[in-house]
Design a protein around this nucleic acid. Structure first.
Lengths: 186, 186
DNA sequence: TGGTACATGTACCACTTGGTACACGGAGGG
DNA sequence: CCCTCCGTGTACCAAGTGGTACATGTACCA
């Protein structure tokens, strides 16, 4: 166990740490102190602050993809949606999601090193979700539109949940959305 | 014209400027240079960097409320939704929306001075939108859930639009949502 | 006219920042 | 046994940071 690159170990620890503290005002030194190393090491392994940020973004994206990979086509879209939503609303994931939205916000403002997030942040999900819709009888076009809407609803309600903490309310809203969707299929 | 407080003028100019540059890595001095003044002035009027941030957040929130105030109860929920969406997707508003989401992300991470955004970011919209639903025959509970879902869809699709720039695709998704909603009423 | 309050600028402070120079140590290969 | 390479630490640097001290200008009121 732990048979990893020191760089790899540092990166994973850094992402976990930044999920807790945020990335906005953190300096190399603060982060290094949190990780029990020196800022010199971060520069050594990642070249610069921006180089580190690039790999942080890449890792956050990779974790999203890992979640995506678990989306197997078994089950109706309704079942898949409910299962996914239950997973996303696990409080253990809140820090990761906060970090995701923080980086999203910075990427929208063009912070160097974060640009890589934007091109894939929506489209990466569209492919698998569109397939799911098609495999349950939707046309390509309909499936694509529904996929996009599903991503938006999920993200919007997650933003709500992280801000308000009102799990009951967002669950009710997601139930409503799934009901609307299911009803439209009949 | 321009008969305003110098502080007020500075604040509005600062929000406009930060909407363009982002708030993340900006220093007092950079911002002051952009505004054609000295960082000393920002400290003088706002007390500190954090004091400035507090007022920035307050102003962004106030602008949201101003948009909200335009939401008059006339028209069906469908008409109101479409009109609102058309306004939100005006490219002239993109910078303000980017700033909004950036501050949202930082508030989620607990950046001092931004906390004020979170308690109201969802609930401020729930009241008026719930009234709208009720005035068109929904129960209190149903109207409230639909309002919450509507806010989430709008924010989620806005995030999509700002990241991808694909206005056609997000418009199609919003149309789909409104259609789903309207169909459920019959 | 004089004074008082607000607005602004200049110069400075201690501190932190990202990044670099350099030295050290240990592991593996010749 | 030495040499080279990787990982790490310490010490340092110039630049920029938020914040303060203090002087100055300008308007308005007595």
């Amino acid at each position: 166990m732990e048979g990893k690159d020191p760089k790899r170990r540092l990166l994973e620890a850094a992402v976990d740490q930044l999920a807790r503290t945020g990335v906005a005002g953190r300096s190399l030194r603060q982060l290094a102190a949190d990780l029990g190393t020196s800022h010199r090491m971060l520069i050594y392994h990642f070249g610069s602050m921006e180089g580190l940020l690039v790999e942080i973004v890449r890792e956050v994206e990779a974790r999203q993809r890992a979640a995506l990979a678990d989306l197997d086509g078994s089950g109706t879209p309704e079942e898949v949606a409910r299962a996914f939503w239950r997973r996303f609303t696990d409080p253990a994931l809140y820090p990761n999601e906060r970090l995701f939205f923080e980086l999203y916000g910075q990427a929208l403002q063009g912070r160097p090193g974060t640009e890589a997030l934007l091109p894939e942040v929506v489209t990466a999900w569209l492919g698998p979700l569109t397939e799911l819709g098609k495999s349950h009888g939707l046309s390509e076009r309909d499936a694509r539109i529904s996929a996009r809407l599903g991503v938006a609803v999920t993200r919007g309600l997650l933003l709500d949940l992280l801000a308000t903490g009102d799990l009951g309310a967002v669950n009710a809203a997601m139930d409503r959305f799934v009901d609307l969707y299911v009803a439209s299929l009949q």
